[in-house]
Amino acid sequence: MNTSTIPANRGTLLDQAYELAQTLERRLQHAIRGREAVIDLLLTALLADGHVLLEDYPGSGKTTLAKALGDSIEDDQPHDEIVAFRRIQFTPDLLPSDITGVTVFDPDTGSFSFRPGPLFAHIVLADEINRTSPKVQAAMLEAMAEKQVTVDNVSHPLDELFFVVATQNPRDQAGTYPLPVAQHDRFLFKIRMDYIEREAELDVLRSARERRQAPGQELPRVSRSAVVLARRTVESFVHVDERIHTCLVDMARSIRESPHVTQGVSTRSLVLMLPALQACALKRGRDYVTAEDVAYLAPFVFAHRMELAPGIDDASEVIRECTRPAMEILTRSTLR
């Protein structure tokens, strides 16, 4: 048993983190209608320090979503060169330096200085990431993994908050560079955004004018440092029981052994899943992870990391089938 002491302000920190998630959720839900599930996952990823790949159709609200997220986070360090939100439209002719930044000669000082690219932002929308060359994709993915960019052998750290929302269009694949599975592994979630419900769509139309005129400005914002603190709080104080670990490992092994799966999930995915589970628990007002969180997040975390056998196309169903025994063991263990 972990005998380390608990800070006295643990409760306060958890309350603050929960409140922060609620604030963000309210703002995002005001900005974009009928996307509660996506907003939930997006904020979970934000608190878990993961990145999100959205698979959607044009006009589904992804830019609005990412921009609203950027707007919701107040830059409490206005004098640095890092802005709240950047959108990068990926094209085939894009170069790595176009996103990382470039070293330029300043005739006034007679020296080279680094001009940061659009990655230097709190929230980055990487639009249609599969349309750019693998070279740019690699630079992007390195930035996501390392939270730094290297230009002319000089490493420039990105913001600690750095959160990427990448998108790709599941149709219209001509002339694209589909991300390999290994690069999918860098994203915490891959979220498919289907068309929203009829009522939600009506609501979008009704509220369009109002939202254009007053895009949620009256709603409170959160500060960048508060988000960073919330991340640390989630990681430190939301409890993950040993039984959850066991369940995750059993699930992964079961998926790997499934005849419907040719490549199973990685150990890294399990490691990445832990903060996601903690964030998910926090968003539900808990300071401990339960089987419910595992069942909820497993498809979003595992589906894009697996390669399915020919003829199988529903990864979620495969995951549900494979994870059921481990989930059952975990659930039953709570009666002892």
């Binding site: 048993m1 972990n2 005998t3 380390s4 002491t5 608990i6 643990r10 104080f237 409890h239 029981d241 039984r243 959850i244 808990r286 300071d287 401990y288 992870v289 339960t290 263990s333 709570t334």
Partner: peptide, 12 residues
Amino acid sequence: FRMREALGDPRN
């Protein structure tokens, strides 16, 4: 109640 007891932080 039970989930908190079973899966929650035993230190708390």
